[in-house]
Design a protein around this nucleic acid. Structure first.
Lengths: 130, 130
DNA sequence: CCTTCCCTTTACGTAAACGTAAGTTGGGTT
DNA sequence: AACCCAACTTACGTTTACGTAAAGGGAAGG
């Protein structure tokens, strides 16, 4: 079994973030790498967590919300009430994400129109200056 | 022609933001409502601008980026170079938005899986406790 | 052994996006 | 006229998400 591990620099480079950010996420309890002496050692699961954090960030979630999103993925064996509220949170997130998709689609359409106008303007200039 | 106008409270209520935020956007030059004495008076175009700002925010853009996005929509009659760079910016935004869409789709799929596991856990409990 | 790196911790600094309090103004009501 | 309410300005406070400087540890190379 090959135990792939990563240094803080490895992950920082791979995901294009600063080591400072990664340490900050650890401070917040969002990551918990092993240690080799003082040095942080990240395994694959920690790498995935970081990946999820950054994906959440790209979607405009705060770190707090990213945390919640990630928590949805490992079903901490809670009681029924917790599972029910978990389902509710999932539904909520889903609604939020669907809304974002619509926002994106709307924006993409508007960008299309903007590009069309832009190209039209370029064409006009070309035929005028010639 | 009916000239619909809005007070700051109207817009704040409609979009569920505070008047403070709206004033802040004006301070940043993102909105420029008319004035009736001291009072701000927003017309439809200003309302749309606010809408665009908030949509940008939902997508995780900074106000700076929201500004840029909105600027893409009114083609300031610039020269060819400006239009070219505008097209480049549009392409860039489009790429970013497409990436976000993929992020969302991925996250939605993972939420599906989380929900499935969650329901399975609930089912197990039900048949066990009975 | 000395220098060079990269890692580490600690701690103060900062930009963005408002929140909030304090005091003012102006229009409508009783 | 007195009062209320909402909007206004000014200005300082706050939270989030890091940036950055300072000071030190350890291993690798010359």
């Amino acid at each position: 079994m090959k135990q792939t591990t990563y240094s803080i620099r490895d992950l920082a480079t791979e995901f294009d973030v600063t080591p400072r950010s990664i340490r900050f996420y650890e401070d917040r309890g969002m990551l918990s790498p092993r240690r080799a002496g003082q040095q942080r050692v990240f395994d694959e699961s920690q790498r995935v967590r970081l990946k999820l954090i950054l994906r959440g960030k790209r979607l405009g979630f705060s770190l707090e919300e990213c945390q919640q999103l990630i928590n949805l993925y490992d079903p901490q064996t809670g009681n029924q009430v917790q599972l029910q509220s978990l389902l509710a949170k999932i539904a909520e997130r889903r609604a939020q994400l669907c809304r974002q998709r619509e926002d994106i689609d709307t924006t993409l359409r508007e960008l299309d129109q903007a590009e069309t106008r832009c190209r039209a303007s370029l064409d006009t200039r070309q035929s005028n200056t010639h």
